[in-house]
């Protein structure tokens, strides 16, 4: 499988994602510069963490206008797998591929630590290799990770089984402790915790690997 890792000015988890995929997962990964207008022969796209455009205006607000985002939208519309991690999640909500928004953590602090995160659904291309309720130890590292949406949207997410991950320790104060969500067609994932920073025992946890393994499994099934 070939993963594309989009690089925006200010991305800083792009290499982590690339390393996880190519070294820990054993699949191909290549960087895609944000000015690209086409995503040729990729099986999946990762929007990595970081501070695209310095988080100016709002996190992800400027990145959504990068040329590559039109291509990512087309890729998602065609059923391609898109995973936005941390800043990538913020970009996906800003550009409307995922509902809701991510605002300042309730305690106003940048939180950088490992948290227990529960897998809420296995009915997705990003969690199919996990067990429902499985607790993953994943790091978070963000100042704006508090997930908010109106009640109707939250109810819809729950009713449609689109909450992919939930915090067991809701450090940022997200509504309904939501850590990751899926789009209606279940091929776009956004999550604030960093699975790519937990793919090797050397990193302290390899629990994040299951997200990438799920993607590989889902892609293999499609072929």
């Amino acid at each position: 499988m070939k993963f594309g890792v989009v690089v925006f000015p200010g991305s800083n988890c792009d290499h982590d994602a690339w390393y996880s995929i190519s070294h820990n997962l054993g699949h191909k990964a290549e960087f895609v510069w944000h000015r690209e207008t086409r995503l040729s022969d990729l099986d999946a796209v990762i929007l990595p963490g970081g501070f695209s455009y310095g988080d100016y205006l709002r996190c992800g607000a400027i990145a959504k206008f990068s040329p590559v985002m039109s291509a990512v939208k087309d890729f998602a519309a065609a059923g391609g797998l898109v995973a936005g991690i941390c800043n990538g999640f913020q970009i996906l909500t800003e550009c409307g591929l995922l509902p809701g928004a991510l605002i300042r953590n309730r305690n106003l602090k940048f939180i950088c630590r490992e948290l227990p995160v529960a897998v809420e659904t296995t009915d997705s291309s990003f969690t199919n290799a996990a067990v429902k309720g499985q607790v993953l130890r994943l790091p978070i590292a963000h100042g704006e990770g508090c997930y908010v949406a109106d009640e109707r949207t939250l109810d819809e997410l729950e009713a449609e089984d689109r909450v992919a991950f939930r915090y067991l320790d809701n450090a940022n104060g997200s509504q309904r402790a939501i850590a990751g969500i899926l789009d209606a067609r279940r091929n776009v994932l956004g999550m604030m915790p960093h699975p790519e920073r937990a793919t090797d025992p050397l990193m302290g946890s390899s629990d994040g690997l299951v997200v990438f393994e799920s993607m590989v499994g889902a892609l293999a099934e499609r072929r």
Partner: peptide, 13 residues
């Protein structure tokens, strides 16, 4: 400005 329904932790502080 934030919508009335959205919590504003900075404003609160």
């Amino acid at each position: 400005s934030f919508k009335d329904t959205v919590l504003d932790p900075q404003g609160k502080t």
